[in-house]
Design a binder for these strands. Structure first.
Lengths: 336, 336
DNA sequence: CTGAAAGCGCTTACAG
DNA sequence: CTGAAAGCGCTTACAG
């Protein structure tokens, strides 16, 4: 591999000291315009590229942040990751994305790797369990999105307003005339999903004439879609038929719709269905899916800004926890 | 931020030199079992974490690879990224994922950042244009997936067998009795997609009784799905109706199916449709989509292994280009 | 089996 | 305005 030039060689070629080259590079400190031109010329001519590793070691700042995410294939996460990364990039930070695949050993290994790489901050998205930061050798600014950290000390916390999301979903079904509502979710979901259920239940409880039942799939072996199909089988067996379903994600919702259809139950005329996430699939399905849309741009912006703020303040160890709650939006389509 | 301990402090606490601590850490060089135990004990007790940045600067090896990808939201890319990253991780490498959003300025900026971070290698996935590596200050092992690099020197090249993919798609339609086939794609697609079209055309040309037409959407403002709907409008207007469609991705295929349905044309009885990628949506749609599945695990494995091989050989500058071509598979479902 | 020392490529007080 | 020098935390010949 061709060796790249160092600041030392640039200095020699420019006839100045390495200190001066460094100053020009960082536009920091005083130097004559003439010197600057001279150095910049040599840098250009030699395609010099600064060595960030050396910078990081020296300055103890990596301008890199680590991002822990359970699953990159999920559309919601992919969007969120993409936007956070884009925001951080415009602010001069690189992002190392670590996909844990919900494997806590992998999560720990990644945390150590990020620690060793001196990342300036950490963003953790969702995840099944409490976040165990005891493996870190340093205290590091941390922002969690939809996840409860078990960390003492300063943690930023950005949440989508899942509680309201559930509430709005129920409200919509009720306003459409539903009186027997099934709330369908997964028994193994993270707290963000449980909040959706909680919101939906709370709302229904405000309406004495509306009943609900909770159906939690524990079929970890199935995809969300397949779980929905599976749950639909339960639904059609019931003596008191449901007329509304709130599913805590869109794939689940679509599985339910298809499962119901297989049993001759039509959506939305016989049963109305509301999903969650406003996944890309919502628009292309027939019936298209009524759903709750999370504000991904705002979640990304809040998380990135909060982390950057924490990095720059770097007050280190007082236990202040900043929280942001980002609104959601009901999107009405054909299914309810 | 709490400062982490250095090897120097571990050395002091263990009563040995930093050299010895380093040896124990890397299990490299000779030392007594007693020394090892002593040092390891201190490391454990103090939750010592090695500083990879210092290691990298010293050894000029970062055990980090960079990955340039056009779009993380695309299911095919997301899967591929995920699997490459997982493979590299088991081999001790971290992966920095850089999403270019098809913006070449962003691509250049990322390339520079990766260069500055001393990544040991680079994987580039797809992308619209030739890859411009002139911004790199070093020669670096590079593997391209479905992308033509314009680089002199050693480049690994892993491709999905897009040509055969197109061929197989046509074959299937023909074997299902189609005689008027529309090949639908995007005018702005990368070469990997053009290969699919080429394969499909070649195959049809083998069959004198089968005709085809090529429809390329140039509506960059539309999603793939919307482009499909749009194209379907063209299709139904034609005097000689088509009875088969090959679309170069699944979302496009689904748009066509929905567009045809809107005009009263039924799939698969009147028109048969084959998509490409075997996206997660294929199974949940009705009709479910017949498609060409790329072998993502093998693509990931080949790319990762090839890159690792190049890194370890590091022969640097002979112009050998390794190529791998990964087979695809026809998956027959309801739409054709 | 172990240590002293050089050096990876930078930044930044300190001195002038 | 500029340079000499220390030091970030490691690894690795070299010497013993």
């Amino acid at each position: 591999m061709k060796k790249s030039l160092s600041i030392k060689e640039i200095a020699a070629l420019s006839g100045v000291s390495v200190a001066t080259v460094s100053r020009v590079l960082n536009d920091n400190g005083r130097f004559s315009e003439e010197t600057r031109q001279k150095v910049l010329k040599v840098i250009k001519e030699n395609n010099y590229q600064v060595n960030s590793i050396a910078q990081t070691l020296r300055s103890q700042r990596s301008t890199t942040i680590g991002m822990i995410v359970p699953d990159i294939k999920n559309g919601f996460f992919a969007n969120l990751i993409n936007q956070i990364e884009a925001t951080l990039f415009t602010r001069g930070y690189s992002t190392i994305i670590c996909t844990t695949d919900k494997d806590s050993a992998k999560e720990t290994a990644y945390l150590k790797a990020l620690d060793a790489k001196l990342v300036d901050g950490l963003i953790c998205i969702s995840g099944q369990e409490y976040l165990d930061l005891s493996v870190m050798s340093r205290r590091i600014p941390l922002v969690c999105i939809d996840r409860n950290p078990n960390v003492k000390g300063e943690v930023g916390f950005v949440q989508s307003d899942n509680l309201t999301g559930g509430t709005v979903a129920s409200q919509h079904l009720i306003s459409e005339g539903c009186q027997q509502i099934a709330i369908v979710s997964k028994s193994d979901g993270p707290s963000s999903i449980q909040k959706r259920v909680e919101g939906a239940v709370n709302e229904i409880n405000q309406h004495p004439n509306v009943n609900y039942q909770l159906l939690l799939s524990d079929r970890k072996d199935l995809s969300n879609y397949a779980r929905g199909v599976d749950i639909a089988k339960e639904l059609v067996k019931q003596t008191q038929p449901v007329d509304g379903v709130f599913a805590t994600n869109d794939w689940l919702a679509w599985g339910i719709i298809q499962g119901l259809k297989d049993h001759g139950v039509h959506v939305p005329t016989q049963v109305k269905v509301v999903g969650y996430d406003n996944d890309d699939i919502c628009e292309i399905l027939q019936p298209s899916l009524t759903t709750i849309s999370q504000n991904i741009p705002e979640l990304a912006e809040e998380a990135a800004n909060l982390l950057l703020k924490m990095i720059h303040i770097d007050n280190g160890n007082d236990g202040v926890i900043e929280k942001k709650r980002v609104p959601v939006e009901l999107i009405v389509r054909d299914s309810a």
